[in-house]
Design a binder for these strands. Structure first.
Length: 423
RNA sequence: GGAGGGUUGGCCGAGUGGUUGAUGGCGCCGGUUUUGAAAACCGGUGUAGGGGUUCACCUCUACCGUGGGUUCAAAUCCUACACCCUCCGCCA
């Protein structure tokens, strides 16, 4: 949610953001409704004020055992007028709120304008493409040959686009999760959380999944829950409707969870392998920061995610998303993409965003500042990192000519010393 | 699933129809005292929205889990719902 005052004072700025983010919120209509709302509100409040004064008067008269029937009769007509006005106020407020839900966050000044991924900016590249003296295989062939996953039987259980990791494949998932959590908890000082895998609509609205991404989530209608599409939802909502102490900030949370996405509209895309699936594991990083510190915390968050890949010795690049490729709620986003030589393409494994006060407004997450005033906190999050794609990169980068896979040494403590997968 | 209890300001906790935005305590801010700190004492301290003088001031409105209702008037009465706690049952 953005500040309605920003829409009032700088409508052109907001309109530009809507356009650049390929959204369609109707700012002119919002301004019109807002004005209408305030006009009617003024009248309603005047009537309420009148009524309050009269009520006090009645109370006093009754106490003195005097007759109040005259003023009582007058109140009757005022009450009626108030009722009608209030009734006309309600639909205005409802449609105004509905429209406001669809206004995206304003991109930061240093975010490039662009229509889609083609407008993204390369920030940095780490490492180099590995040179093979044979044709590197895609991960799905490697996984099948080494018995790391079973695609056919996965479909038997839940349908297409679900992964059934088997044997060493399942172990590798678990090892990577533990490796990443250890790094973030012990080196980067995040507090480890193990949250519920589903959340209520208020949470989904708070982080900005609702209303826009309704179709992308799995819903449990009977109990009004959604399966979390990312741990960002439960982690950020931990402090929904709270006023934090200044000395609590910044707060760092990390969690491993499964993530569930319907991937509506992506049918037929990336159908083979682990690239796009309905359920995947992810280690997530979430921060709550003071508004003056969020930009700095954003850079640190990115570095925390990058370190995972650096330690694993993987080749990656960081891109700054342009306006058209950013999410609805984000003010600035960096994506980290891993190089997958078998598929000969870059794979997004992390998205690190600063939401500024956008989510905080929706979720009502505030803090008491030095000056004693209550202000909205800034929220940030990033994947640290997403799993199946990390597994893809490891399998494809670490494959040997003979078809085996040799894992990075530092994973040995997490795999009972097993660092080589052979058929 | 059954039975009962609860939900009040940053926190704890009073309050069952008429200056109650709400006693009190804690916390926080300012002051007195002190070489300094602590303690003690004094004073201040809610949020959101609207309107005006315009960032420090004034004023109006709303807010005591949420939504409806009764009433001139509701934290206080009625009603539906949500959440929390306790006990019993069932189950990992």
């Amino acid at each position: 949610m953005i500040d309605i005052n920003l829409i009032r004072t700088q409508p052109e700025l907001v309109k530009a953001a809507v356009k650049n983010k390929n959204e369609k919120a109707d700012i002119s209509r919002i301004l019109q409704l807002d004005q209408q709302y305030r006009d009617v509100l003024k009248e309603v409040e005047a009537l309420r004020s009148q009524k309050n004064t009269a009520s006090e008067e009645i109370g006093r008269l009754k106490k003195e055992k005097k007759d109040a029937s005259e003023i009582l009769a007058k109140m009757k007509s005022i009450a009626e007028r108030q009722k009608t006005l209030e009734n006309s106020l309600e639909p205005i407020k409802t449609s105004l709120d509905e429209l406001l839900k669809w206004v995206p966050n304003i991109p930061d000044n240093d975010v490039p304008a662009g229509p889609d991924a083609s407008g993204n900016q390369l920030v940095k590249t780490y490492g180099e493409k590995k040179v093979f003296d044979f044709a590197p295989k895609p991960h799905y062939d490697i996984a099948e040959n080494l018995g790391l996953a079973d695609f056919k039987r996965a479909a038997k259980i839940a349908g297409a686009s679900f992964i059934l990791f088997t044997g060493h494949g399942a172990m590798l998932e678990r090892a990577l999760i533990n490796f990443m959590l250890d790094l973030h908890v012990h080196q980067h000082k995040y507090t480890e959380i193990s949250p519920p895998y589903l959340a209520n609509p208020a949470c989904m609205f708070g982080t900005g999944q609702l209303p826009k991404l309704e179709e992308d989530m799995y819903k449990i209608p009977k109990d009004e829950f959604y399966l979390n599409p990312t741990a960002e939802v439960p982690l950020t909502n931990i402090h929904r409707d709270e006023i934090l102490d200044l000395n609590q900030l910044p707060i760092y949370y990390t969690a491993y969870t499964a993530c569930f996405r319907r991937e509506a509209g992506a049918y037929g895309k990336d159908t083979r392998g682990f690239v796009r699936v309905h359920q995947f594991d992810k280690v997530e990083l979430v921060k709550f920061a003071h508004p003056e510190k969020s930009a700095e915390e954003h850079e640190k968050l990115l570095a925390d995610a990058e370190e995972v890949l650096q330690m694993l010795g993987l080749h990656y690049r960081v891109v700054k998303l342009c306006t058209g490729d950013m999410s609805f709620a984000s003010a600035k986003t960096y994506d980290i993409e891993l190089w997958a030589p078998g598929m000969d393409r870059w794979l997004e494994v992390s998205s690190c965003s600063n939401f500024r006060d956008f989510q905080a407004r929706r979720a009502n997450i505030r803090f008491r500042d030095q000056d004693g005033k209550v202000k909205f906190a800034h929220t940030l999050n990033g994947s640290g990192v997403a799993l199946p794609r990390l597994v893809i990169a490891i399998l494809e980068n670490c494959q040997q000519k003979d078809g085996s896979v040799k894992l990075p040494e530092l994973l040995a403590p997490y795999t009972n010393g097993i660092i080589e997968f052979k058929s």
